[in-house]
Deep mutational scan, measured.
Amino acid sequence: MTYKLILNGKTLKGETTTEAVDAATAEKIFKQYANDNGVDGEWTYDDATKTFTVTE
């Protein structure tokens, strides 16, 4: 399945997608991606749209 991440960081904003077997796997990938890019904030997930959002 395709999952989407919306980044609302102070210095980085944008979107990315990943292919993952489930939401938990996608979350791990996205949290590593956000960490690698210096984004740390409040996480939400919308199962209907398979979208994670992180807001600093």
Rank of each mutant, 00 (worst) to 15 (best):
M1R: 10
M1Q: 11
T2G: 05
T2I: 13
T2Y: 06
Y3H: 03
Y3A: 01
Y3E: 00
K4D: 02
K4G: 04
K4M: 08
L5T: 01
L5D: 01
I6F: 08
I6V: 13
I6G: 02
L7T: 08
L7V: 15
L7E: 02
L7W: 10
N8T: 08
N8P: 02
N8M: 11
G9E: 03
G9T: 15
K10A: 09
T11N: 14
T11Y: 09
K13D: 07
K13N: 13
K13A: 14
G14M: 07
G14R: 10
G14L: 14
E15G: 04
T18S: 08
T18E: 05
E19W: 06
E19H: 10
E19R: 06
E19K: 12
A20P: 02
A20G: 05
A20M: 03
V21H: 12
V21N: 09
A23H: 14
A23R: 14
A24D: 11
A24T: 13
E27R: 06
E27D: 08
E27A: 11
E27S: 12
I29K: 11
I29S: 06
I29W: 13
I29V: 14
I29R: 06
F30T: 00
K31T: 07
K31F: 07
K31A: 07
K31E: 04
Q32M: 15
Q32T: 09
Y33H: 05
Y33W: 08
A34I: 08
A34K: 01
N35Q: 09
N35F: 15
N35Y: 09
D36Q: 10
D36M: 12
N37S: 10
N37M: 12
N37W: 14
G38S: 07
G38R: 07
G38F: 10
D40N: 11
D40G: 09
D40V: 14
D40R: 15
E42I: 14
W43G: 00
T44N: 09
T44D: 11
T44F: 08
T44Q: 10
Y45K: 01
Y45S: 01
Y45L: 02
D46N: 13
D47Y: 08
T49D: 05
T49G: 05
T51F: 03
F52L: 01
F52I: 01
F52Q: 00
T53A: 08
T53K: 07
V54E: 01
V54H: 02
T55D: 10
T55G: 06
T55V: 11
T55Y: 05
E56P: 04
